[in-house]
Write a protein that binds this DNA or RNA. Structure first.
Lengths: 171, 171
DNA sequence: AAAATATGTCAACATGGCTGACGTAATTAC
DNA sequence: GTAATTACGTCAGCCATGTTGACATATTTT
């Protein structure tokens, strides 16, 4: 089998995109830009930033989650997380409990203040999503969820799906 | 921690979302997280970051655009833009030309190197979008574009639509 | 001529990433 | 039962990229 010119699936960039997606790229930027800035005004009153919001969001969605899982979702280092987590804990928005089976774990829970703040932060973002969906067909929501899940790194789509669609679980 | 106990009376937008959108919020985070990190490895070889990428993206999409329009799209200060723009110009990826009618303007153009780099940066992101759309109905693309546009601040949806759908124009 | 506009720049600071090194408690492996 | 591994935390410093405020220059508009 020497000298056969295999249609070598290139190593670096196997599949070239046929189409241009500049529109979707730009729209994703604009949509995310505005969506993510919604809670800024509320956060500022607590002297928190977007990093605090992300932590609060995931901890309230997954009460009792492990620190390692949070790190895996946020894809940041434990040092970066530690900084904001410490502020959320000393501020009384998040608590830690040792794991029952493995007491090395320090499972994360939002306090009632944490839940309340998270709810307030979700409000403007929920309204934005609701408004965006309102003008679309009723099945648009599923289409968009599918699209966003497909946009995640393939190796992690399983984890993400499990975490997102079994929201409010510790995994 | 200033002002922790804020009476929830100061409600600016009085419409409460009926549903929970935690799934879409999380998915948008995960999707954007992975989408935006695609070009990091390429950027690093040029000692550029994501801010450079954003500038290059919009300048290649809108050749001859004004600095003020770029600032309006990115929603950052001219000082922040100035830093990365200077590096892109001294690196030979972007050029400026005085405007014909208004010579105060310094219109932005990508050089051929800039176009080439922008194309390389688009590659992994285009592949990701193509893969994400591949498993959806053919009309999903329009649904997603509509959704993302609707997610933009209402006051700017017109500008964004004009800019995105008349891609490759200086406005 | 004066005011407004488009752009650039300096300096200082904030947020939130990063790496590297090190420490402690609890669990697992040999 | 000791050793290795794991889960988590922390100190210190650096980097990318956002911010404000003040000021400069050229050009256009009034």
């Amino acid at each position: 089998m020497a000298d056969v010119i295999t249609p070598s699936r290139e190593r670096i960039a196997p599949i070239f995109p046929k189409e241009r997606y500049d529109d979707l790229m730009s729209l994703l930027f604009f949509a995310y830009r505005d969506f993510i800035s919604d809670p800024d005004a509320i956060l500022a009153r607590y002297e928190f930033g977007r990093a605090h919001h992300r932590v609060l969001h995931f901890v309230t969605c997954h009460p009792g989650m492990r620190v390692a899982d949070l790190l895996d979702m946020l894809k940041i280092t434990k040092q970066s997380l530690g900084r904001v987590l410490k502020q959320l804990i000393t501020g009384g928005y998040i608590e830690q409990q040792p794991g029952e089976t493995d007491r090395r774990e320090r499972l994360l829970f939002a306090t009632s203040e944490g839940e309340a703040l998270a709810a307030r932060l979700r409000e403007p973002q929920s309204r934005r999503i609701e408004r965006a969906l309102a003008r679309l067909e009723p099945d648009a929501r599923d289409t968009i969820a599918d699209f966003l899940l497909n946009m995640v790194n393939e190796a992690e789509q399983g984890d993400v799906a499990r975490r997102v669609f079994e929201e409010r679980t510790s995994a």
